[in-house]
């Protein structure tokens, strides 16, 4: 049963992501990548890591891919994208290196026999709790550093997006808007 599910989702995941790379249609690439992210969560469920599986769906499909979609709203997504491959040498080197890396990662557990779980799941504890225990004991420092990084990114985002947030065009009168435009054009002239 588990083997069937594993191979099914493995094939689906690989198919989805290769379609993301191969397709020249931006909307197809986006949808297949979102679907692939959901397929990956199946492996977490198969490994009894329910919590991480759902977090994978929420974070990658629900948030990251949705932001990609936002970015794509500025293109015409109904047309195929023309790609320029300037150097075939670079493409070849990168793909060979990536393949080597993947092969090394996958053969490691076969080559080295003394690999075991550093933090095996404590018995009698539910999966979300086990994740929490590891996160707030062994990995507390990386966890907090990641939180600080996200905070920095959030503040940077607010600063960059919120330059004229104190003014609202809907609340201003027509003359005030005209004044604002005039001031801005004058500024450009003096510069």
């Amino acid at each position: 049963m588990e083997a069937i599910a594993f191979y099914l989702f493995a094939v689906l995941t690989v198919a989805m992501f290769s379609y993301t790379v191969m397709s020249s249609q931006a909307l197809y690439a986006l949808s297949s990548m979102a679907a692939g992210m959901i397929m990956i969560s199946a492996f977490f469920f198969l490994l009894n890591a329910d919590f991480l599986g759902v977090v994978q769906i929420i974070v990658y499909t629900g948030a990251v891919m949705a932001l990609y979609a936002f970015g794509m709203m500025f293109f015409d997504t109904t047309r195929a994208v023309k790609e320029h491959n300037t150097s075939k040498v670079i493409v070849l080197t990168l793909s060979v290196l990536a393949t080597l890396l993947v092969i090394t990662i996958f053969t490691m557990p076969i080559a080295a026999e003394n690999i075991s779980a550093a933090f095996p799941e404590p018995a009698g504890v539910e999966n979300p709790k086990a994740v929490g225990i590891v996160l707030f004991t062994k990995y507390l420092v990386p966890f907090e550093v990641a939180a600080v990084m996200l905070l920095v990114a959030m503040i940077a985002g607010i600063v960059m997006a919120g330059k004229k947030m104190d003014r609202s065009l809907t609340k201003m009168k027509e003359e005030e808007i005209a004044m604002m435009h005039q001031e801005e054009t004058q500024k450009k002239v003096t510069l």
């Binding site: 909307l27 949808s31 979102a34 959901i38 329910d50 919590f51 759902v54 977090v55 769906i57 929420i58 499909t61 629900g62 948030a63 949705a66 979609a69 794509m72 709203m73 997504t77 109904t78 539910e126 999966n127 979300p128």
Partner: peptide, 28 residues
């Protein structure tokens, strides 16, 4: 009866966003 019930519901509802989003983007 999964032990992450409410999180699962939130996650699946989050994917529901793709219906309107893809529909709107594909509509031309």
């Amino acid at each position: 009866d999964v032990n992450i019930g409410i999180l699962y519901i939130l996650g699946v509802m989050a994917i529901g966003l793709y219906g309107p989003l893809l529909g709107g983007m594909a509509s031309n």
